[in-house]
Design a protein around this nucleic acid. Sequence first.
DNA 1: CGGCTAATTGAGAGACGTCAAATTTGGTGG
DNA 2: CCACCAAATTTGACGTCTCTCAATTAGCCG
Lengths: 232, 232
Amino acid sequence: MDYKETGRGENRCSPHNLGIFAELGNDFLGILKNLESNSLNYAAPEAIYYAGEPATGVYILRSGHVKLFKTTSAGKDQIIRVVKPGEIFGFDGLVSELYNHSAVPLRQAEVCCIPVASLQSLGAHKAEVERLIMVRCIKELQHADERLLELGAKRSAERLASFLLEWCEGVAPDKWTPLVLSRLEIAQLLGLTIETVSRLFALWKREGVIRELHQSIQINDATQLKLRSLSN
Amino acid sequence: MDYKETGRGENRCSPHNLGIFAELGNDFLGILKNLESNSLNYAAPEAIYYAGEPATGVYILRSGHVKLFKTTSAGKDQIIRVVKPGEIFGFDGLVSELYNHSAVPLRQAEVCCIPVASLQSLGAHKAEVERLIMVRCIKELQHADERLLELGAKRSAERLASFLLEWCEGVAPDKWTPLVLSRLEIAQLLGLTIETVSRLFALWKREGVIRELHQSIQINDATQLKLRSLSN
DNA sequence: CGGCTAATTGAGAGACGTCAAATTTGGTGG
DNA sequence: CCACCAAATTTGACGTCTCTCAATTAGCCG
């Protein structure tokens, strides 16, 4: 499969796998199909959009992962959120002219792009969509609250432990979870440096709390990790 | 005026000064008046709601300030947001059972409480309200993004400088702005300690960048402060 | 196998936190 | 108006967590 810029498919989004909008039922899916929504493929280093660009589209992630981040005046990145398949992102355009953050795939991402203009012309279904977006927003706000607590009130080990637990949430203890983020990206997410993240990984691997193979991780001792995610 | 618990007025909210909902026009204000929305007064140490309580109401702040915060397992507070008059807060109930954070007035707060149940029975106006809440949410999400950048990627001086600039935003350079937060609360907002905040204040006052009198501050050298809010 | 990038590891420095004491502030009652 | 008290703030000395800088190793792809 070719995910280069030139290889990006510009097809209609199929009604399947539309994540949040699936709740709207097939009625809506039909409508959405008639919108000029495009399915787009992105590879790792290329941006879906940059902070400050005109916010023309709302995106649904269909596969892969997307990191949303802001950049300091010194060029330091802070990852705001990692988007998982089925989730929506980039809805700044519903409120403001420009995107508030940048969006880049972690490795690869297949997204469905819905122009903001299309959402305005939904007629009877507009309210439903706005309700769904409202619900999604509130949930994200709650998630942001949690992240603010992490960054503002916790130490490095607590942050990393929380992150790993969340990342591997719902995975069987003996199963491997692909760690799509590099050390740098984990550091940028947790407000730390590559080195501190690396040291904690090394320590916990030596202690047998976690395991890592290729690009995947496994939580060996969840109890211990939960312990370390708590402020003592 | 008595803001003690016992002195809390339980009147209907007048249609004036309803902040975000004002956009809905008088039509809606009439409807809102018919809802069982209560005007409530709170004084500093008493909570409007606590994290984990059933999220039964949505609030509009009519006067004063409210801090929204989460508490660590170690009892450390992180202030998520400071609510200003006209703003809405506590809309977790539209999505989840329980409040996700706690809400306490900084000094005093007059709020309008709208039961979630009432919002559900708005009929034709429900969509309008949900749209307004969606818009508000997106804006708050953008604000949260900025705060995450502050906490994750900036040093103490940069955080405090940004905060002061935002707090005094739109105030004439020779006017005083009431600093409603204590040193502790500023520290809890910025993810620092009382002492570091105090030291920075002392330094900047010595340098003549800011001034402080009673509980009010004034930015003497905005250029210098902006300089210090940027990552170097 | 070479060459590049990511990750690891070590040593040292610095920013911020912690602890404790001194000082100021604001409110209260004489 | 002043004295007094409790709480908030300031200030200092010190500790430590995390960053910084640098060198080494591991992983990956042609």
